[in-house]
Amino acid sequence: MRIAVLGLGAVGKGVLRVLGEKPELGLVLTGVADSTSAWIDPAGIDPQTVLDRKCETNRCGSEGRSAADILDSGAYDVLVEVTPTNAATGEPALTHIRRALGTGHHVVTSNKGPLAAAHTELEELAREQGVALRYEATVGGAIPVIHAITRGLIGNKFHSITGVLNGTCNYILTRMDDEGLTYEQALAEARQLGYAEADPTYDVRGIDAAIKLVILANTCWNLGVTLDDVSITGIDGLTVDALRLAADQDCTIRLIGEASPERGLLRVAPRVLPRSHPLVIEGTLNAVMLSTDLAGEVTLMGRGAGSIETASAIIGDLLSIRDRFVECR
């Protein structure tokens, strides 16, 4: 199966590393593009050579060629869209994905922007074209929560989704709780360790968690909700005293995303939870609890970010597409 990768940040590099280390998966790289260059070869490209070239020149391919050339060439079966997320417009990923689906190609993405902006439209386009749109890597990093909802728990009615969806916030709250650090101290530490961006607004104000909640809710219930429908409160106003008062009750505080159409809920907010609660997890971990009619409660927990961890989700999507579509052709 031929793969084209658009975007060569941490996630794109992780995917290329796995493709290079596991040739037995049968995934052949035929196109790769970063923001300033591209490389197309229908005969196959060695992923390690791309990574070396990117490291040496900061370009993965030839100047003057771009993602659009790869899309024009059509020399791929599955597009892996891993360009940086733009929460407002979803671009340029949205254009890339529309183009690939519209020309009958499968798409695997880690990019939350296009799904937040146009989930329903993209799913319809994929259905019309008889191709797959897979986005496991958009939520919960390595955790196969989208697979759990759409495959493992298929046939269940979902009552609610509750989750810790942002590792940066979970790290900050863990440190405030464990060490009595102030919010500012814990944030500074998270930055130093590379867990928080230079501008942490998107994480600490709950926007990242809210986008992931929207993606999960639309996957579960297909109600076409958007970021504007989510009631969002971040963790930036929390005090050490708040964590201490919770600790006095054998509780703690975590940033929780909660969706339940039955209860009219679509909310991201810091919440008080007993320490024994399955969503009280440490550090940068993520967790999602699905409440269903048949299976009862199912909780998935794991690494919510990281280059190879996110690549795991993308590789899982690629192989499930191969099993479902490509081999029966």
Binding site: H159, S160, T162, L238, I256, E258, E262, A269, R271, V272
Partner: peptide
């Protein structure tokens, strides 16, 4: 003011 509420258990 910011209010931090407990997480209610899912209804079963």
């Amino acid at each position: 003011l910011l209010i931090v509420e407990p997480l209610e258990e899912a209804e079963r």
